[in-house]
Design a protein around this nucleic acid. Structure first.
Lengths: 227, 227
DNA sequence: TAGTGTGTGGAATGAGCGTTCCATAATGAC
DNA sequence: GTCATTATGGAACGCTCATTCCACACACTA
């Protein structure tokens, strides 16, 4: 059951230079002569706001009232545009993966020395996590912990997201080995899985209120395994 | 605000050999000539049942209805004996730490070779986590992720629990170093923090549905850091 | 056996939840 | 200006939530 649309992020197209006027993309090729009244809000911005709320409070603890006021729109518009709470949450997860986490991980694809890039990436992630005054951690990890055992569809999406993280680590570690930055006895697959798990652990510790010193020392210890 | 009682676990004393008859401990020394009607349930067993539900579903997603049917008692008895939902949850957390997690960690205090004991402990924890068909993970980690950012009191309790884990690892690693199982360049404090974080990460991965192979390989990689 | 006080079971409460619906406002096409 | 169509804002719905309350059952004392 469910009917999640295949790609919420591309449902709307910007037509004019006025930043908050949008039309449903599926209307563009029809015989319909009339253009509907434009939305007064930017759906992408609204999803972004919803993401912040879910990220901060989690799925269950976030009420539609919370979303309504954070997204600054009314019930009718929210339900017409994004569907119900669960559907909106799926779109939020999608957006978090594609426009938030994805670009950060793509930094690892850059050519050049692999291990310094990897270390820089992980330290940056930790700095970011510690700098957040709300210690929200990572929306993917938060949702795994809250919903994975009960929501199979969401669990599948999250498994894919985590697998993409492992693959990104695997690619950069394989490159490191090819470039002689990693000794021959090292297994990029095992190390990729290790780093993926380590990142999740660090997120938990950050949410638990661990000090910057402890988290950074732990990351150093973990990275020492690269040799 | 809140009024959590200092130690719910010791509130009741077993008086007879009939296993489900209990009296409030604070009544025993009073002038009261009458003994009240005994409870028909065992409060410890009831807390145990409540723990299973919170562990499986999390705090927000667990309803009083869920608790009532799992604990097999009625509203009046639940509220009279355990207080409201939040108070009951605090008692559950306390019980999880003292009678569930605590004894497992105390296995690490045994004399003899330290590192094999440590490896055995960690592998056992992973086997246990993987064997749980519900993949509930760890109540402490689950609660950190769900409530830490919003519930200061609970967050403090969880921080203490995690600190005790670190201390237990620290003790066994210090012993390992003293016994020559760990080379002199290793830092027991850093390694204890590393293992604590790693355990949290493994819990997330288990909840995310990672395969036994992946989790075990990851643990092996992590433990290889001990030398 | 009578009296006392607590446990039990279930009804009742009021607040908050996610969701639906509709009169009205506003827009672009003609 | 008129029409068609959509967005808006808010009222209203049915449900579930945590919690309170009370008549009754029961155990123990005297």
């Amino acid at each position: 059951m469910g009917g999640i649309q295949q790609n919420g992020a591309m449902e709307y197209l910007l037509l004019t230079d006025r930043s908050n006027i949008y039309y449903p993309a599926h209307e563009l090729g029809t015989l319909e002569p009339h253009m509907p009244r434009p939305k007064e809000f930017n759906p992408d911005d609204a999803i972004e706001k919803a993401m912040q709320v879910f990220w901060h409070k989690g799925y269950e603890a976030t009420s539609m009232e919370d979303l309504l006021s954070a997204m600054d729109l009314n019930r009718g518009s929210l339900y017409d545009t994004f569907g119900d709470k669960r559907t909106l949450f799926l779109k939020v997860i999608d957006r978090y993966c594609t426009t938030f986490a994805g670009p950060k991980f793509s930094l690892l694809d850059q050519p050049g020395p692999a291990l310094p890039t990897l270390r820089h990436f992980i330290n940056g992630m930790i700095e970011g996590g510690l700098a957040d005054p709300q210690r929200r951690g990572c929306l993917i990890a938060n949702t795994v912990m809250e919903l994975s055992p009960h929501e199979n569809e969401i669990a599948g999406t999250l498994r894919q997201a985590i697998h993409r993280i492992e693959e990104t680590f695997f690619k950069v570690l394989t490159r490191a080995k090819e470039q002689g930055e990693l000794t021959q006895d090292k297994d990029p697959r095992a190390l990729a899985r290790f780093l993926t798990t380590m990142m999740q652990g660090i997120i938990v510790m950050i949410k638990a209120g661990a000090s910057a010193e402890v988290v950074k020392q732990t990351a150093e210890t973990a990275l020492s395994i690269l040799g």
